[in-house]
Design a protein around this nucleic acid. Structure first.
Lengths: 226, 226
DNA sequence: GCCGACAATATTGTTGACAATTTCGTTGGC
DNA sequence: GCCAACGAAATTGTCAACAATATTGTCGGC
């Protein structure tokens, strides 16, 4: 029983906090696609009122993270492989442009910071945990998006990632893919250090396409016949 | 009194319909940034229950289109020029990649359709109305995004556009800018017809950057001192 | 044993009333 | 005339009860 959530202030959690909690449950795969979100359970688990819970579900529905059907309530929406494809294409566009901007605009200190994270990731392939690798990876991508101060893009990418986040830890972060990712990062870093914006952008796009291809092949292996 | 909204079925409008209605009001500048959205008024105007109206507002808040403050309710959120910059950068990335895909993947029929719209827009610069031009422009951009079947990107771009949509009709679609836009479209179309994906992408990015620059200069003219 | 109809339960949708808070007008003092 | 304190009105936040619908379990017929 994970009835944690909020025991902090006198008041109950706000709708945004409840939505964040549900979102984190989905990201960590404690809530899986198709699973129904019963209002009473959410009230018990979060300590929020029914009203707040419903507001939170509406917000999540606006993000297309949950689906609300009349008289059937909310359930976690799973992305189809086709949707995952579109989603990765959007990420390639957004993060690609950020990588180019980074190569053009980042200070030497920022570039060194990027290199430091990349090197720690390389060590992590053999010795570290998947959690550590995932955290470093998130830092790496975020740092690139942050340099131009574009919070809009950062928010969009984070939102695009949410529906597939659990897949990464389940199936993605294994030896082969880790080495691939590290090699991709190396290519991107080289282009950035050389100040070659177009090459940095192209390498970033390739990196994200590779991620999609890997995910796609895993799915094909799991659902062989069509 | 525009208490239109819904007189269709026996039942009242759903939360999504109410949200759509509010969104359209914002897009058409009948609701301006900073304006407060009073629940009672929305109930009168849409015919929805208070509960549905509040659900709709939550959805819009999740889209960052309205802001909800405790005990002060919802108000239309206006984007700062800095945010507009970030937003146009995201659009450049997303629509740029779509233009490249279009050049690579579109059928000859689709390319001809794009050319037809572009030519109608050219006629529209002199003889037509701003509304007609705006509609054609939306068709043009949508057609490019549709060809790869990427609804995710299409939805994102539409959402990114919402906060600035009213500015376009207020200040954007004047003689000079119209001619500029038509010239940009011509460059994009040329690259697409030549099957030159990188050039199409670059031209689309330039087109969107130009749009931002124009908007930015207008803002600078209106708020001269800083 | 399998299947459909019916009842019981569970879950969500809706409404109304009331509490908390802000906003705005008014009054009184200076 | 201006300003602060006060109070009434407006507005939103919350809750509980009830209605509508879906889901589940049970029973009887075949």
């Amino acid at each position: 029983m994970d009835e944690l959530a909020k025991a902090l202030p006198g008041k109950g959690p706000t709708a945004i906090e409840i939505a964040d909690w549900i979102r984190s449950q989905i990201r960590s795969a404690r809530l899986v696609p198709g699973q129904r979100l019963i209002e009473v359970d959410l009230i018990r688990q979060t300590g929020g009122s029914r009203f707040k819970v419903r507001e939170a579900l509406q917000r999540l529905a606006a993000e297309d993270l949950v689906e609300i059907e009349e008289f059937r309530g909310a359930s976690v929406r799973g992305a189809s492989m086709e949707e995952v494809r579109q989603l990765y294409r959007a990420r390639a566009a957004l993060e690609g442009i950020c990588a180019g901007d980074f190569a053009r605009l980042a200070t030497p200190e920022e570039k060194q910071r990027l290199r430091a994270i990349a090197e720690e990731m390389e060590d992590c392939v053999e010795g570290g945990t998947r959690e550590r690798f995932g955290a470093l990876n998130a830092q790496w991508h975020t740092l690139i998006m942050r340099v131009t101060g574009n919070e809009v893009i950062e928010t969009l990418v984070k939102r695009l990632n949410t529906p597939v986040h659990h897949l990464l830890f389940e199936t993605f972060y294994r030896g082969d893919r880790l080495r691939e990712a590290v090699a991709d990062h190396r290519l991107i870093l080289d282009a950035i250090l050389a100040g070659d914006a177009p090459r940095a952008e192209a390498a970033m796009r390739q990196h994200i396409e590779n991620g999609h291809r890997f995910l796609s092949s895993l799915d094909a292996a799991m659902h062989p016949a069509g």
